[in-house]
Amino acid sequence: MKRRDFLKACMICGAATTLGVTPKKSWGAGSFEGYPDGMGVLVDLTRCVGCRSCEAACNKEQKLPTPDRPFDDPSVFHEKRRPTERAYTVVNKYEPKDGGSPVYRKIQCNHCNEPACLTSCFVNAYTKTKEGAVVYNSKVCVGCRNCMIACPFNVPGYSYSSAFNPVVKKCIFCYETRLKNGKPPACVEICPQEVLTFGHRRELIKIGHERIRETPDKYVDHIYGEKEVGGTGWLYLSSVPFDQVGFDATLGNDPIISNVKEFLGTVPMVLSIWPALFTGFHLLSTRNKNHSDHGHDHSEQEDHKP
């Protein structure tokens, strides 16, 4: 290879690298707004009275083990709980800072438009269904718990109780028994106060904003989950600032996958260009070495002189 040819190749490689940035940008900008007919639930915290019926309904619908305490026992509110393998949804109680009446908040999987759990799973156990549910296949789950770390809401639970086949467990929006057949999840159906409104996600956002518009004194002017981490299927309205009732208000609106999307976009480019580039460098350096072989040997000989 002539030196001129090599420099030409370098120029072409450089140009390709620069052009390569353009498709990478489109990766970063492309965001998934959720399936057009994706379903969701609008949770109005101002309505919840903390009866825990949703927990009971979830337990029966998903055939979960007997709870430690009865579902009508309010003593569970003494601690802040999170979903586990034994309870896919839990209600926590918060005392607002302004001293108003307590606020109850139901926690379960928020069924993200762009789920971090799905992104993090290297065996592809997770699926975002067209109905909006984030479901998983326990049969392929290897129990690595990447999804538990990736989830911005700390939702997936883990079957620590299972010695031989521990897998991740979480709310699946009652996909198999209900959502798939056009029925609302069990928690929505049991809720006496209609805290939970089930419907198309796009309609629920309109309903949420309409509630805020009609009664602006009652609500914080924000629907949590409309934009957070790229949007979630479950959406929340509250009378008190969200960070006071256990929500992470620092998550930002970018899906978790955006943190790695740009990096991952460069991987194919690196894999295809770098070998050629560094082979070129190698050829160039060895060629130079061949030219200066004599001089080099000479200097080595000189070095040996005392």
Binding site: A56, K60, T66, F71, D72, P74
Partner: peptide
């Protein structure tokens, strides 16, 4: 039975505060 309470309460219940909701 649905609420795992009364006759159907779990055995190891601490047995303190009872009541539904408030």
């Amino acid at each position: 039975a649905f609420y795992n309470t009364g006759e159907y309460a779990p055995r190891q219940t601490p047995g303190t505060e009872k009541g539904h909701g408030h």
